[in-house]
């Protein structure tokens, strides 16, 4: 039997001969994921852009897409009817994230049910196990999804509400908007933990953005480990490229990782960035660089 990721791969490729879902990620934060994602998207045709960095979505500061609708992102959390509950504690035992606490009744007091909805992973095990059917699932809002467009570019972005921690569930809902008739560019959160994995999984290719610093290299190595485990093809973009590039080049050569593009450490690019202007708009020759990168990715995937 084929592993699940293989089946997905076949389905994606069957449905669209020439369109790809490409995630832009990095181990280290602040290397230029959003810069690469936005400028890449603006250089291609037939694009959909998803901002999955739901804890700090900032792509639209640069894209300026007009938002046409905002959807609440909901998850299911348990609600316990204390008239039916006998404080047996089975729900608390089955909960892997300890989002329920049942304090049994004693001689002088009745039992107490405490829920911690922000810890809940919406698995539904408590509802399933409750012998008194005292638990029902209710909706809880964890964030919003903004949908819109900038010209022909379709846009969707997730925004996690303050105090919420279940970003993978919001990311999953943002990714439900993927339009397979488009080339989809997904801006990922930084790091190598659950939100990143949720974002990059089932994408056709991942662009890892790094910088030529020891921190950039260290976290690139971590991200490479994750992508190898997930069996997602990937390549590297060196941002703020300068005389220290050698450390990244050496690692990529050793590991046989393609370097897709180098973006120089350039005051002009930095100035545009600080004004919220994607640099391909003022330096159109970079569009050719991104188109060339896209062609290289397509060759890798063919």
């Amino acid at each position: 039997m084929l592993p699940i990721f293989c089946i997905n791969k076949i389905l994606i490729n069957d449905n669209n001969m020439n369109n790809y879902v490409i995630s832009i990620a990095s181990g280290k934060g602040g290397t230029g994921k959003t810069t690469v994602a936005v400028n890449f998207a603006l250089s291609l045709n037939n694009v959909q852009f998803l901002d999955c960095d739901v804890e700090e979505p900032n792509a639209n500061l640069f894209l300026n897409a007009a938002i046409s609708k905002t959807i609440d992102a909901l998850i299911s959390v348990p609600k316990i009817d204390e008239n039916l509950c006998n404080y047996c504690g089975k729900c608390q035992e089955v909960c892997q994230y300890k989002s329920l606490a049942i304090i049994p009744s004693s001689n002088n007091s009745k039992g107490i049910v405490l829920t911690f909805p922000h810890l809940c992973h919406s698995c539904g095990a408590c509802v399933y196990i409750c012998p008194k059917t005292a638990i029902e699932e209710v909706d809880k809002k964890i964030g919003e999804i903004e949908i819109g467009n900038r010209g022909d570019i379709l846009f969707a972005s997730g925004k996690l509400s303050i105090g919420e921690i279940m970003s993978p569930y919001l990311i999953k809902q943002v990714k439900k908007n993927i339009n397979k008739s488009r080339n989809v560019i997904i801006d990922a959160p930084p790091g190598t933990s659950c939100p990143v994995i949720e974002t990059v999984k089932h994408t056709d290719f991942c662009v890892l953005v790094t910088e030529p610093t020891p921190f950039g290299l260290n976290d690139l190595i971590l991200a490479v480990d994750v992508l190898k485990k997930l069996k997602i093809p990937f390549g590297v973009v060196i941002n703020r490229s300068d005389i220290w590039n050698n450390m990244i080049n050496m690692y990529c050569n050793e590991e046989n990782i393609p370097i897709l593009m180098e973006i120089p450490f350039d005051m002009g690019i930095a100035r545009l960035y600080s004004n919220g202007i994607p640099f391909v708009e003022k330096m159109p020759h970079y569009k050719q660089e991104f188109i060339r990168m896209f062609e290289q990715i397509k060759r890798i995937l063919e």
Partner: peptide, 15 residues
């Protein structure tokens, strides 16, 4: 070794 909710569970143990 719980990944989360250790405070809640420890409170339960004390109770």
């Amino acid at each position: 070794n719980l990944t989360g909710g250790a405070g809640i569970q420890s409170a339960q143990s004390v109770i």
